[in-house]
């Protein structure tokens, strides 16, 4: 099994030593190195520009998370969109929402389990592996199982919320449904940083395989690339990104960041690698433009980000004519 995934013994050894070291490095960075860096960066920025927009702790959290979402979501989305799997992110977001509901419900009685985002991560990962299992057994990412998972997990979430109404989840559940840039606690920023590092690392290592499978599945199989293994990597990474992005965009809108910047970039380039870079640039423009316009126009941030992204897409389509 290992020999099929890693292409030589040398690479296997590298991974065996590298993986625990990498995990330790990521955790160490997120817990010890990142907080002072965060303070230093925003301290300097606030000192230089000095407006409420960059000096409020809420918005500093929101901006940081948003920039990382703008980086990771289009990166993963580029493979999904080009495989006609655009809606898989939406389905995973809805399962993550179900996970949040369960997490809040359990967390309201069990103090130490009160960390809804981890429950979301758990639910999305289980759903991702479940959908992958369905895809292997039915040999496709059919849209019917996708629709069943999407609506089913959302129904479960709604059921749990309505049952636990007495506990009053109130605004918290709403922030996961529609996203809320003013409601990103610092530990979620840290989680986002960790997820972003993991996603970037995974994509950097497996880009070639993911691209090969995306473009020509049969030729990838011939090159003895373990396509189901890399499909699983992609879908699990997607689950991570979706959970991370959900706090800003909300479960309902999160798929837009996976799809829209990529769709815009695809109009304008002849190269997949250029398309990747362009997707990330469009993602960042959408996030920053969305946050600023939501502040000026006083509209929901998630919605503003998606609308800016769609404006970019329309310009790209018109510009390509």
């Amino acid at each position: 099994m290992a020999a099929e995934i890693f292409d030589s013994r040398r690479q296997l050894t590298t991974v065996a030593i590298g993986l625990p070291a990498t995990i330790a490095a990521v955790v160490g960075f997120v817990y010890w190195l990142f907080p002072p860096l965060f303070d230093a960066f925003w301290g300097t920025t606030c000192g230089a520009i000095d407006t409420w927009l960059v000096c409020s702790t809420f918005l500093q959290h929101g901006f940081t998370t948003g920039i990382l979402v703008g980086l990771t979501a289009p990166l993963v989305g580029a493979y999904l969109v080009n495989r006609q799997m655009a809606l898989i992110g939406e389905a995973l977001a809805h399962t993550a929402f179900g996970g949040v509901a369960i997490g809040l419900f359990i967390g309201s009685t069990v103090e130490w389990a009160n960390y809804p985002l981890l429950w979301a991560l758990l639910a999305a990962a289980i759903a991702a592996l479940g959908m992958q299992y369905l895809a292997v057994t039915t040999d496709s990412y059919a849209d019917v199982p996708l629709a069943i998972v999407l609506t089913g997990s959302f129904a479960l979430g709604v059921a749990v919320i309505s049952y636990g109404d007495g506990i009053a989840f109130g605004r918290e559940i709403e922030s996961y449904l529609f996203g809320n840039i003013l409601f990103v606690p610092f530990e979620n920023v840290q989680l986002m940083v960790g997820l972003a590092l993991v996603v970037l690392g995974m994509v950097a290592l497996t880009h070639k395989q993911l691209l090969f499978i995306t473009f020509d599945r049969e030729a990838a199989r011939l090159a003895r690339i373990n396509v189901w293994f890399y499909d699983t990597v992609l879908i699990v990474v997607t689950a991570l990104v979706v959970v991370a992005a959900m706090q800003i965009l909300g479960a309902i809108l999160v798929a837009a960041m996976l799809v829209v910047p990529v769709a815009a970039a695809m109009q304008l380039t002849s190269s997949f690698n250029h398309g990747l870079v362009l997707s990330v640039i469009f993602g960042e423009v959408a996030v920053l433009g969305g946050i600023l316009s939501s502040y000026w126009l006083d509209i929901a941030t998630g919605a503003a980000i998606v609308l800016v992204a769609i404006a970019i897409y329309l310009l790209a389509v018109l510009g390509d004519r």
């Binding site: 080009n82 995306t214 473009f215 049969e218 997949f272």
Partner: peptide, 11 residues
């Protein structure tokens, strides 16, 4: 033809 040759941006 391959899966992505008509839709994907790829050089």
């Amino acid at each position: 033809s391959s899966d992505g040759e008509s839709t994907m941006p790829i050089s």
